[in-house]
Design a protein around this nucleic acid. Sequence first.
DNA 1: GTAAGAGTGTCACATATGTTACACTCTTAT
DNA 2: ATAAGAGTGTAACATATGTGACACTCTTAC
Lengths: 222, 222
Amino acid sequence: MFEILKLSPLFLGLNTQEINSLINNRLHQIRNFSTNEILAFSGEKVEKAMILLEGRLRGEMIDFAGNSLKIEEMESPQMIAPAFLYGPQSFFPVNLSALSNGKILIIYKKEFTQLLSDDQRILNNFLNIVAGKAQFLSQKITFLSFKTIREKIAYYLLNNIRSGTMIVLLNQSQRAMAEMFGVARPSLARSIGELEEEMAIHWERNQVEIINLQLLKSILGR
Amino acid sequence: MFEILKLSPLFLGLNTQEINSLINNRLHQIRNFSTNEILAFSGEKVEKAMILLEGRLRGEMIDFAGNSLKIEEMESPQMIAPAFLYGPQSFFPVNLSALSNGKILIIYKKEFTQLLSDDQRILNNFLNIVAGKAQFLSQKITFLSFKTIREKIAYYLLNNIRSGTMIVLLNQSQRAMAEMFGVARPSLARSIGELEEEMAIHWERNQVEIINLQLLKSILGR
DNA sequence: GTAAGAGTGTCACATATGTTACACTCTTAT
DNA sequence: ATAAGAGTGTAACATATGTGACACTCTTAC
């Protein structure tokens, strides 16, 4: 187990020996789960720190009519819902179910807080994890708040130029990109086509060449 | 100063005496600023914990063309950019400028981490602050990811029903609500009008009565 | 009471995006 | 080499939302 934990972001920089003594001197549990088991319901209070040791989990957001909206998968080793262990809305944001058999390490919140106090490296790691989540979400909101597809494309390209060049490498299909933008695939293709006609960019399968940087920037300035 | 800090979320539950000794035993600075002074630029590394003691600040997001996009104001006493002190993207997300004269308490990151280690109440408070930010953003994303105005209205209403009733109290104008939804004001009014025609809701100045709860829920279930 | 301004309902029209469909190209497994 | 499937470009049409305008109501300050 401690070999696995050593690979998790929470225990970054600690050796197996140190992890062993920090965990074993402290109340904890191992919980085994099997495929399709439901580990937590959306809205349930988060009272324990949970670290996925083995197996795969799925978080599923459920709407008012009971349909699933967004789905996110998680692999080990990783903390589960780190941003929901503290804070005023300390409830699971999703239904958590098992995609395979596996194991979770459970540490109750009070013990976990003590653990953070006891080892400053773990404290730093945890703060990095939670702040990282907040930063990711903040980035995503910036993105979602652009209204037109043109703006999203421009923003994406300007943020992904290889430094010193006018090239953006694409590591995903238009289909995946459309999904990330929250727009329909043909609509994305149409907007790309328009930008090409305007000689702003030259879009190829795997990379985009920026032809008129100024024009691209002006799309983002209202 | 310690009287002011006692009111800040970070020092919740500590008395003036305790705050005094925790701060004074530790490297810190007080920085005075005056109106219109710029305290930090977007993209600058965040290396210190900063707590606004007096005065008002404005965070301004700047786009690629140099125009300001979103603006947020902050009042004392409050931590500045708590979610950006740790994490992989530890850079100011906004330009930070002063709306008035005032004072900031500055504690360098290393010292601040030590402070979190030393007092578990402060640790808990800080974790609550950062997790709270993440939760707020997560909530906002849920909201932004509804595509139609009907969906946003339905989601908003269902989340704000006074428990045990079929009434939602409105504490903001349609104008403000449209801005929060990221849509145009007349478009919001039109969608409201449609929902009224369908006998789903009865919208008055200050409150909304839900007439057909089932219909409202079905809007969110695709 | 009255004037001014904010809030609201509504309209005609412009625009952006979604939907569905199809053809074409590229990649990959066999 | 070929077939199958994914990725892409494009079109016609449907729909949702934005824009700008105007009238009306409500609130508030004087």
